[in-house]
Computed example of a mutant assay.
Amino acid sequence: MAVEITPAQNGNMGSAVTGFTVAGATAEDYAALRQAVYRDRIIVLKDQQDITPEEFVELGRHFGTIVPYYEETYHHPDHPEIFVSSNLSADGRPLGVPRTGRFWHADYMFAQEPLSVTVFAQKILPPGRRGTYFIDMVKAFRDLPESLKQEARVTRASHSVRRFFKIRPGDVFRPLGDLIREVEKISPPAVHNTVVTHPVTGEEILYVSEGFTDHLIGAERDSLLRDLLEASGQLDETFTDPHIVLHTYEPGEIVIWDNRALVHCALHATDPSAPVMSHRVTTVDGHPFDANPTPAGRGAGTGSAK
């Protein structure tokens, strides 16, 4: 069966991919998948129930250089390239970290070199709905009033992991100040343009998130960041903003998305005790993260917004 990519209809985001296997895919197939990720933001590989961890890692390598998560508590026990989110244990030790990602973010937004592509598999589905909310930040930027676009273009954004860093078992009883200093040393805040230019598509991306962006540099008013988050839908606690799209998982799916262009937020199962597990690999794709990193007029400092 040949690999077939079927884009969503009526302007919706994403494509469905059928006929794919890691063992049978050709270089041309992978090139088409990469093109679809950049074009459609999300691709969903169907019928991947039998993929092994080794094959999952191999799949990720076709989308760039895999970057393992910097905290080992999230690593797969046999394949550190795989980030594990689960509420399960093996041999008395947790398998990964439970209930991750319940806030708007792009993966590794707080890194000096943010990630390009995310490959995600829901390995154990809990009862009821389990999914991921997405916002296309290219469209979100395109929909901004012109005045907000101009304000955003001349600022830079500072991103930090400190708000959602999960306490590790060994951190119990440690002084909070020591832990904060360690987190900031291991993963210091990173500064990127508020508006990033996609190196493949040339599109402008509003690169801010409710979870990781703590302030804007060069902004002439403190309210600009909140205005951008609100306009993109990230402050809508009802998740009904028209920019928000929900993907609910079906057994055997692997979802691959453009981590530059999208922010996402996990929809967890209602029952936190229900068994659940997901695997993820993340990559840098070999392109510059931002095709226009230092355009004239953007703030160059690292201080706080006015």
Rank of each mutant, 00 (worst) to 15 (best):
A106D: 01
A106N: 13
D107C: 07
D107R: 03
Y108C: 13
Y108N: 15
M109W: 00
M109K: 07
M109C: 10
M109E: 15
M109T: 11
F110M: 09
F110C: 09
F110H: 12
A111W: 06
A111C: 11
A111E: 14
Q112A: 15
Q112C: 09
Q112Y: 11
Q112R: 15
Q112L: 12
E113P: 01
E113H: 14
P114S: 06
P114V: 09
P114F: 03
L115F: 05
L115N: 11
L115W: 04
L115R: 06
S116D: 14
S116N: 11
V117S: 02
V117E: 00
V117Y: 00
V117K: 01
V117L: 02
V117G: 00
T118M: 07
T118A: 14
T118L: 10
T118I: 12
V119C: 11
V119S: 06
V119W: 01
V119I: 15
F120D: 07
F120K: 04
F120C: 07
F120V: 09
F120T: 08
A121Y: 08
A121P: 01
Q122K: 13
Q122H: 12
K123R: 15
K123V: 14
K123A: 09
I124H: 04
I124W: 00
I124T: 13
I124M: 10
L125S: 07
L125E: 00
P126L: 01
P126C: 04
P126G: 01
P126Y: 00
P127N: 06
P127H: 04
P127C: 05
P127M: 05
P127E: 09
P127F: 01
P127D: 11
G128S: 04
G128F: 01
G128D: 02
R129W: 03
R129T: 12
R129M: 05
R129G: 10
R129H: 04
R130H: 12
R130K: 13
R130Y: 12
R130D: 00
R130N: 12
R130M: 09
R130V: 10
G131I: 04
G131M: 06
G131C: 11
G131P: 08
T132Q: 05
T132C: 08
T132V: 12
T132L: 02
T132P: 02
Y133V: 06
Y133G: 05
Y133Q: 04
Y133D: 08
F134Q: 09
F134V: 09
F134C: 05
F134T: 08
I135V: 13
I135R: 03
I135H: 02
I135G: 01
I135T: 03
D136A: 03
D136S: 02
D136K: 05
M137S: 06
M137Q: 15
M137D: 04
V138G: 02
V138I: 13
V138R: 13
A140H: 07
A140V: 06
A140M: 09
A140L: 07
A140E: 07
F141P: 00
F141A: 00
F141V: 00
F141W: 08
R142I: 03
R142E: 15
D143A: 13
L144H: 12
L144K: 10
L144V: 11
P145G: 11
P145C: 11
P145W: 08
P145N: 10
P145M: 10
E146L: 14
E146R: 15
S147W: 08
L148G: 08
L148C: 09
L148A: 11
K149V: 00
K149W: 00
K149C: 01
Q150G: 05
Q150K: 15
E151C: 05
E151P: 03
E151N: 08
E151A: 13
